[in-house]
Design a protein around this nucleic acid. Sequence first.
DNA 1: CATTGTTTTAAACGCTGTTTAAAACGATTT
DNA 2: AAATCGTTTTAAACAGCGTTTAAAACAATG
Lengths: 202, 202
Amino acid sequence: MAKSRNTEQKIFDAATELFLEKGVDRTSVREIATKAGINLALMNYYFRSKENLFDAIFTQLVKKNSEELIRILNSELELEEKIRQYVYVYIDMLSENPLLVSFVMAILHRSRERITEMKAISNLYATDQFTKQLIDEAKKGNIRRTDPTHFFVDMLSLIAFPFAIKMLVMDKNNITEEEFMLFIQERKARVPEMLIDSLRHR
Amino acid sequence: MAKSRNTEQKIFDAATELFLEKGVDRTSVREIATKAGINLALMNYYFRSKENLFDAIFTQLVKKNSEELIRILNSELELEEKIRQYVYVYIDMLSENPLLVSFVMAILHRSRERITEMKAISNLYATDQFTKQLIDEAKKGNIRRTDPTHFFVDMLSLIAFPFAIKMLVMDKNNITEEEFMLFIQERKARVPEMLIDSLRHR
DNA sequence: CATTGTTTTAAACGCTGTTTAAAACGATTT
DNA sequence: AAATCGTTTTAAACAGCGTTTAAAACAATG
């Protein structure tokens, strides 16, 4: 046999599919090789390690999905509308990409250090423009003074954590996966209101 | 050599220490055996599997820490005070037990199914009394009508998720571990206020 | 004192991710 | 056209993992 030149892509595609199906840890390199129809050693030849292959897949996936989030965060949108759009798009994104959720969980689980060395992530959370907006609006008296870091952490928590505890919520409330997805949909309206409420004067 | 009768405990202790230090996945059974000063096979003899040993350690850890949380949630405390205490104690608990955070992350990461089959967790989130309180207070007009499930998920998200993204927050804000812990401490006041705000009429 | 059931041991099993060294191949140079 | 060179593919092995096995060592019992 010879080059065929799409070997790398075949590995990438097979791994993506298997990682989605069964999770990263439960997918073996031999399985990937079989599915891709290539020799076992080629995975290491092209990606150096399984970890590296995972990183490549994750980075591509984040890049594909994060552009809109970054655009919204750095747009000139009025604050409340920006929060609404950001939450809405983010929740939709996680809803439509279970793989993304699994990957994020895997990353968070692993990360004793290696987080922002993944460029895909550090770009995703470049919040300078948003931070400035929060401070400016507070100066103008339009909203309450708030710590931008806390606010952003609040926002991410309310958006992402429910996906992490999906099984817990399903078990506790005796609901199906479909019903859970409805529950998540409800949050697209609820979470922005809660965040905006927290910025109001009282 | 002979029974020594604390072999099981020695395994348990060594594993707990190593799991805390390096995480479950990065700790091998051979390492546990060495640290405990026992034969490799004894881990399987006493705990059947590494997964089972993990479950045993996790269950004990949760039991030790969750009593107070359950007590608060089912107490007769007035709603606002209950929220304040719950958040305060929960955050303190996670702050003082990094092992607990790692374990929860590991569990969430694994869980494609097996969540509430861990009794320790299902007890932890028995929220009937709390749910009733939210509904009653709304009927009395003291708070806004709210979906108790959403509210509880909000609460857990704001409490727990920041621990999960610890490295991300540290990297992004260029802060040390100590400064991160201060950031977490600030949330003990912030999070309850946000939750209580979300219950106010407007 | 022999027997029984429990605990410990050394060795192996089947799996994992990864490395090795040689083979096969395509393209380039002579 | 043949030889050379760098790339790609292969089969085989390696070291590590969690786990199992079967025999040995031991403590308690009849």
